[in-house]
Each structure stands twice: as structure tokens, then as C-alpha cells.
């Protein structure tokens, strides 16, 4: 087992955000985390990366408890793409991506790191942004740069928190294709919190559905994304279709108004 989370509990003062969450991530798979706003998706990802410290529960990575690992060791194994990113001071896109090399070198970068950064610029398709200032970019461009920084980290696992929330439809697909090809070609794994049910259905190998800080269901896309589960978790009536062997979800209406619209 690659990454294992067992009985994770996290609270902000008195509010319990995560309630005994357990999950297992295999090598070379994309695990999509779905759930409504406030279900605890981002908190779960932050706990796994030790950005937040859970009150109880065990997280192991290749059978090592992450509490016994230094931050630098974790950074060598886990890459993290936050939802939003800001920088009050100017930094070029090139320098921003170069930061991803930090876990692999001492206090300065080497020519090898420059080369790696150039490769990543090409891979993510943002070569022409290289010398632009990060703060001048659009939200979608910034999101790609932040993904590129996590890729420059060259980790075995990627934690993605809403990696496509600011992107247009083409860029959403491009980003997901990049992640999928890395997972399948390089054998890395990814945990991805995401709002778009159909993007998750299409690209995730397994789906973990969360509600109010606990796991509601987990399994392959067809078994989890059922009309019953979607009604229970999101309060939405939906029709599930089969599109290229993947579920395609057509949301119809909120449950409480159902009599008016779903006749």
C-alpha cells in the first residue's frame, strides 16, 4: 500500500471537520474526492500533506508514519497544488516553478534544476509565460503555473485541490490529460479534490464521496456516482448516462423543488 490514512479526525476548536476518515491510495491511480462545499475535501488533503495537524489518526506513506518524517522528506514524496495562490512581491513564472526544485537541492539551484524547469514549462504548455510576472497572470494561468511547480517537485504522489476551478473547458481537459499521462506513464499517484462530477467521472480511477466530514462511499465511478448517492450527498436529482464507458451525470434539480421541475 502506497499511501494509507486511518481514522483521521480533525477539528477547528469545537467544529469537527473530519470524522474518522480512512482511505488507501494505490500506486499509479487517480483518486477523486467529491463532496459538497464544506464536506472536508481540502482539509483532508492538507492533513495528508501535514500542513494541518490532525487530532488523531495515522497517515503512513510507504509504511512510514508521516509524523516521523521531516517536512523536507514529505516534500520529496508529496506535491501539493493549493486552490488559490498569491504573492505580495514580484516573481517571474520561471522562478515560481523553480521553487518546486527546493526539496531536491540545498540553498541554491543547479543547472539541472533550470533544465527541469524548462521541461515542465513545455509539458504544461506555458512556455510563453516564462518571463512574465506571476501576479499579472489570469487566475487560470496562475493555476497552471502552480501545477507546474508541483510537477517540478518530481514526487511520487500529487495532492490536487480543485486544480481546474479557474480554467476554461479546454484548459480543464488539458490539465487533466497532463495529470493522467503522468499517472499512467510515470506510475505516480494522485489524490484530487474536485467539484466537477463529470470531470471526476472521466479521469478518476476511483472516487471517494464525502459528506459532513465522513466518507459516504468509495469505489469505481459507476458504483459511486449513482442517482441515490447524488441525491443523498448533494440533494440533487440526477440522471446517469453511459458515455464511452464512463458515467455521465446530468443534474436535474434540487431535491426539495422536485415536484415542480422533474415531472
Amino acid at each position: 500500500m502506497f499511501l494509507k490514512v486511518k481514522d483521521l479526525v480533525f477539528s477547528y476548536s469545537s467544529t469537527r471537520i473530519l470524522d474518522e476518515v480512512s482511505l488507501e491510495l494505490e500506486g499509479s491511480e487517480i483518486l477523486g474526492i467529491l463532496g459538497p462545499n464544506g464536506a472536508g475535501k481540502s482539509t483532508l488533503i492538507r492533513c495528508i500533506n501535514k500542513i494541518l495537524n490532525p487530532q488523531s489518526g495515522i497517515i503512513t506513506f510507504n509504511d512510514t508514519n508521516i509524523n516521523t518524517m521531516t517536512r523536507m522528506e514529505i516534500a520529496k514524496n508529496l506535491g501539493y497544488v493549493p486552490q488559490t495562490s498569491t504573492n505580495p512581491f514580484p516573481a517571474t513564472v520561471f522562478d515560481t516553478i523553480l521553487m518546486g526544485r527546493r526539496p531536491h537541492c540545498g540553498w541554491r539551484n543547479s543547472p539541472g534544476d533550470i533544465k527541469k524547469t524548462l521541461e515542465i514549462l513545455e509539458l504544461v504548455g506555458i512556455k510563453d509565460l516564462a518571463m512574465r510576472d506571476f501576479t499579472e497572470l489570469s487566475g487560470g494561468q496562475q493555476q497552471k503555473v502552480v501545477l507546474a511547480r508541483a510537477l517540478a517537485q518530481e514526487t511520487d504522489a500529487l495532492l490536487l485541490d480543485e486544480p481546474t476551478s479557474n480554467l476554461d473547458v479546454r484548459q480543464q481537459l488539458e490539465t487533466m490529460e497532463i495529470v493522467r499521462s503522468l499517472v499512467h506513464k510515470n506510475g505516480i499517484s494522485s489524490i484530487m479534490a474536485i467539484h466537477d462530477l463529470n470531470l471526476a467521472a472521466r479521469y478518476a480511477d476511483r472516487i471517494l464521496l464525502m459528506k459532513n466530514g465522513s466518507i459516504f462511499d468509495v469505489g469505481d465511478p459507476f458504483s459511486v456516482l449513482t442517482p441515490e448517492n447524488i441525491r443523498e450527498v448533494y440533494g440533487v436529482e440526477a440522471v446517469i448516462k453511459d458515455e464511452d464507458g464512463r458515467p455521465y451525470i446530468v443534474p436535474k434539480c434540487p431535491v426539495k423543488n422536485c415536484n415542480e421541475c422533474c415531472q
Binding site: 521531516t70 495562490s85 505580495p88 512581491f89 527546493r102 540553498w107
Partner: peptide, 20 residues
């Protein structure tokens, strides 16, 4: 520590995830 200062200005969470 100047490289770590660059990283810290990208946000505390990002800096932690990069090992700082």
C-alpha cells in the same frame, strides 16, 4: 535563507508543502 524567503512569500501552505 534567501531562496526559502522567496518560497515563503508564495504562501505559508505552499512553503510547507515545499519542505520549508
Amino acid at each position: 535563507k534567501s531562496w526559502d524567503f522567496n518560497i515563503i512569500s508564495s504562501g505559508d501552505e505552499t512553503a510547507k508543502s515545499l519542505g520549508v
